[in-house]
Simulated scan of single mutants.
Amino acid sequence: MTLILPSAACNAHCHVFGPRSRFPYARGATFVPKEDAPKEALYALNDRLGLSRCVVVQSSCHGFDNRVTEDALASRPGDYRGIALLPTHVRDAELQRLHAAGFRGVRFNFMGHLGRHTPIEEVIALATRIAPLGWHLQIHGDPALLTDLAPALRRSPTPVVIDHIGRIDAALGQNQPNFQALLQLMADERFWVKVSGMDRITRLGPPYADAQAFARTLVAEFGNRVLWGNDWPHPNHAGLIPDEQQLVDLIAAIAPNPAAREALLVRNPERLYQFGDNP
């Protein structure tokens, strides 16, 4: 049965790639998409699925050149927000410019396949500079490395969003140390988590029954600090590319009542990404 989403539902994690003729991929990028995934395709998908709001996350294939994400926001001002990739020495004037364009956070990758990691102390120093804007840190990390980073992340003066259920291994169960470490982080009110990426952490494949349990626990225990996104167009995906409608329908399995879905899809992203405020 197709799930009907609440009004103003948000896809809080997706990307745009290219077109490369207008937005070339970064020289030395750790990966280059086989096909472009332009903003028009994203708009069409979100509209079809009933997702009127969206957060576009700058991808490492475009590096620190955030123009491709900025362009996607400009065509749907107010309803689309962005997460940037930035060097930690970025100028304050550039942060202000990106804020006016609709950006609300900066992402750091701590995954081995995405290249060199930014020193965590530099990340925390940047967090101090973005805090006045109401921005947050978004952390995409290998679960073991994320545990190592936890003491520093707890010093962040801004909210910290953990991507894709912390990239834990669903086959290891909820008592595994990596998931317990994520729960300990979430006990701190400054931490948020994206219950996206069930298709990445599963070992069973669709409909991701092993991964659903983790997402359901996070929604139940931290319902005011969870976010959902479909991760379109699923870069660097090792398994079967998900069915987009199935991902939406599975929201009912992880947020089993209307109040939980309203928080997950509307109220939480509205608060974190400042929807309704002028870009």
Rank of each mutant, 00 (worst) to 15 (best):
P119M: 09
H164N: 13
T118L: 10
G239Q: 11
K39Y: 04
P258H: 07
A101T: 08
L114Y: 10
G239M: 06
I254S: 03
V90S: 10
A127Y: 04
A209G: 12
H15G: 13
D163N: 09
D210R: 01
L45E: 15
R190T: 05
D169C: 08
I120V: 15
V161I: 10
V161M: 11
L98T: 02
A125P: 04
L185D: 00
V57R: 00
A238H: 05
P235E: 11
I201F: 14
F275Y: 12
L218Y: 02
L95D: 01
P38M: 05
G28S: 03
A8H: 15
Y208E: 09
E35R: 13
A259Q: 14
P256G: 12
H15P: 13
P177C: 05
F108N: 03
A211E: 04
R271N: 09
G78F: 14
A144S: 09
M1W: 01
E35A: 14
L86I: 07
R167L: 10
G276A: 08
A209P: 02
L182M: 12
F275R: 03
D71W: 15
N257Y: 09
R225D: 03
Q212D: 03
E270A: 14
G50Q: 02
I130K: 00
N278E: 11
I251S: 03
V55K: 00
T118A: 13
S196I: 11
A187Y: 00
Y43D: 15
R91Q: 09
L146G: 12
A84G: 08
L133G: 06
L3I: 07
P19I: 09
